[in-house]
Amino acid sequence: GIPATNLSRVAGLEKQLAIELKVKQGAENMIQTYSNGSTKDRKLLLTAQQMLQDSKTKIDIIRMQLRRALQ
């Protein structure tokens, strides 16, 4: 079985993952909103794209940590 310490770690990672998935969803929504907007929305679009990139990276890292914890 999986050690108890790993189980609480997994629960924490799953919570983090859920949050990051919401951030990713929000960033994707912002990108959709701003991509057909005016030029003043360009900065917001770039910010949203950066957020999305960061979020995807975090999600990958969390998933990797989850896999390790579940081994």
Rank of each mutant, 00 (worst) to 15 (best):
D41E: 04
L70G: 06
L21F: 06
S8W: 07
R67L: 11
I31E: 01
Q65D: 04
N29Q: 12
K22Y: 04
G26I: 13
A69I: 13
A48D: 00
I2N: 13
D41S: 03
A18R: 10
N36W: 06
L7C: 15
E20R: 02
Q16M: 13
L45H: 02
A69V: 10
I2V: 11
N36G: 09
A4Y: 03
E14G: 04
T5D: 13
T57Y: 05
K56C: 13
E20Y: 12
R42I: 10
D60P: 01
S35K: 07
A18L: 09
S55H: 01
A69W: 04
K43W: 08
Q25H: 07
R42A: 13
R42N: 13
G1Q: 09
L21R: 03
V23T: 05
N6M: 12
A4I: 09
N29C: 14
E14V: 15
L13K: 01
M51N: 04
Q71V: 06
L66G: 00
D60Q: 11
K40V: 09
T39L: 08
L45T: 01
D60W: 12
I61H: 08
M64Q: 14
Q25P: 00
K24F: 12
L44W: 04
Q65A: 11
Q65W: 09
A48M: 05
Q53L: 09
R63H: 06
L46D: 04
I62C: 01
G37E: 05
K43Q: 10
A48I: 04
G12P: 03
I61T: 04
L21T: 03
A11S: 05
K15Y: 06
S8I: 11
G26H: 15
I2Q: 10
K22G: 06
L17Q: 00
T57K: 10
D54Y: 05
L52F: 05
S55E: 00
I31S: 01
K56H: 04
D60S: 14
V23N: 15
L52E: 01
Q53H: 12
R42V: 11
Q16A: 14
L66E: 00
L17I: 02
R67V: 11
Q53Y: 08
P3W: 05
G37H: 04
I19A: 13
Q53G: 03
R67I: 10
L52M: 04
R42S: 15
T5E: 13
D60V: 12
T39P: 09
N6I: 15
G1V: 09
L45F: 09
K15I: 05
K40W: 09
E20V: 05
L13R: 00
E20C: 14
Q25G: 02
R67C: 14
R42L: 08
K56D: 04
D41Q: 03
Q49R: 09
I2C: 15
R9N: 11
T47D: 11
T47Q: 14
L21C: 13
V10E: 01
R9K: 13
Q49L: 12
Y34G: 01
T33G: 08
K22N: 07
T57G: 05
Q49K: 06
A48N: 01
Q32R: 11
D54F: 03
Q50E: 05
T39R: 05
M30Y: 03
Q65Y: 07
V10L: 05
G12V: 15
Q50S: 07
K22F: 04
N36A: 06
A27G: 01
L66V: 02
L70H: 04
D54A: 14
Q49G: 02
A4E: 14
I59V: 03
L66I: 13
I59S: 01
S35M: 10
K22D: 05
G26Y: 12
Q65K: 09
N6L: 13
G1A: 10
S38P: 14
G37R: 04
Y34L: 08
T47C: 15
K40Y: 13
L21H: 02
A4K: 13
L21Q: 03
D54I: 07
G37F: 03
R63D: 02
L44I: 05
L7P: 14
V10D: 01
L7S: 12
I19P: 00
L17W: 01
S35R: 10
Q50H: 05
S35I: 11
T33H: 06
L52K: 02
P3L: 09
Q25N: 06
E28S: 03
Y34R: 01
K56T: 14
R68P: 01
L45E: 02
R42T: 12
M64F: 08
L21V: 04
R68S: 11
I2M: 13
K24R: 10
I2P: 09
K15P: 01
K43F: 10
V23A: 08
I62M: 02
S35E: 08
E28Q: 07
V10Q: 02
K56M: 11
G12N: 13
K56W: 04
S35Y: 13
M51W: 04
P3H: 12
S8Y: 07
A11E: 15
G26P: 00
T39K: 09
I19N: 09
Y34M: 04
E20S: 03
T33D: 10
A48V: 03
L21Y: 06
L44C: 12
T5V: 11
M64A: 13
L7D: 14
V10T: 03
K56S: 08
N6E: 11
K24T: 03
Q53M: 09
L46V: 10
I31H: 00
K58D: 00
A11N: 07
T33Y: 08
I61E: 10
L52S: 01
V23M: 06
D41L: 04
K15N: 04
M64Y: 10
R67K: 12
L45R: 02
R63L: 10
L44K: 11
L70N: 03
I61A: 09
S8E: 15
A69S: 03
T5K: 08
N29Y: 08
R9H: 14
G12L: 15
A18K: 09
K56Y: 04
A48Y: 08
E20G: 01
N29V: 11
L52I: 04
Y34F: 09
K56G: 02
D41N: 07
A69E: 11
D60E: 14
L46P: 02
L45V: 04
L46I: 12
G1E: 14
T33V: 11
S55Q: 04
K24C: 13
E20W: 15
D41A: 03
L52C: 03
Q71K: 07
T5S: 07
D60N: 11
M30C: 09
E14I: 15
T47F: 07
Q49S: 03
G26M: 12
V10N: 03
T33L: 13
Q71N: 07
L21A: 02
E20T: 05
L44S: 04
Q16S: 07
S35N: 10
R9L: 15
Q53D: 08
L70P: 02
Y34H: 04
R42C: 15
D54E: 12
P3I: 06
Q32N: 08
Q50A: 07
A18W: 07
D41Y: 04
K40S: 12
G12D: 14
S35H: 12
L66A: 00
K22A: 10
M30K: 05
V10P: 02
D60Y: 11
L52Q: 01
A18N: 06
D60C: 15
E20L: 14
N29P: 00
L21S: 02
K24A: 08
G1R: 09
I61L: 09
L70M: 07
Q32K: 13
K56V: 11
R42P: 13
Q32D: 08
I31A: 02
L17C: 08
Q16R: 09
N29A: 12
L21I: 05
L7G: 13
D54T: 10
A69F: 08
R67M: 08
I19R: 15
A27Q: 02
Q32T: 07
A18G: 03
K40M: 08
